[in-house]
């Protein structure tokens, strides 16, 4: 079970280095060299991962997803923050 680090919309997020990422049948699979673990980010997680290649505020990320996907703002915000919290707990992203 992955723990969840607290993330706020005012933070800036960026991919951590040291991960090998591959697309498999529409889903993103990642090997963390640092952790020695494999992860499946799924389709939506892969989309979010692509959008945080460069430093991006959590607020901008949510706004970008809202423009592309049919989802309520509160649902999108809560689920994206939860997902980023899991990535942060696994040290896959940097938050500032």
């Amino acid at each position: 079970m992955i723990e969840n680090q607290v993330v706020s919309v005012s933070q800036v997020v960026k991919q951590n280095e040291g991960n090998i990422v591959s697309d498999m049948d529409g889903e993103k699979v990642m090997l963390s060299i640092n952790k020695g673990k494999y992860y499946n980010l799924g389709e939506m997680g892969g989309e979010i991962w692509d959008q945080i290649k460069e430093p991006t505020s959590v607020k901008e990320l949510i706004e970008s997803l809202l423009a592309q996907y049919d989802v309520e703002e509160s649902e999108c915000r809560d689920q994206v923050i939860s997902f980023l919290g899991m990535l942060a707990s696994e040290e896959l992203i940097q938050l500032s």
Binding site: Y38, Y39, N40, G45, I48, Y69, Q79, V80, F83, E90
Partner: peptide, 15 residues
């Protein structure tokens, strides 16, 4: 036309 939203999940693969 907006795309269908799916909850983003992080799954640890047992490899």
């Amino acid at each position: 036309m907006k795309r269908e939203w799916k909850k983003p999940l992080l799954e640890v693969l047992d490899v």
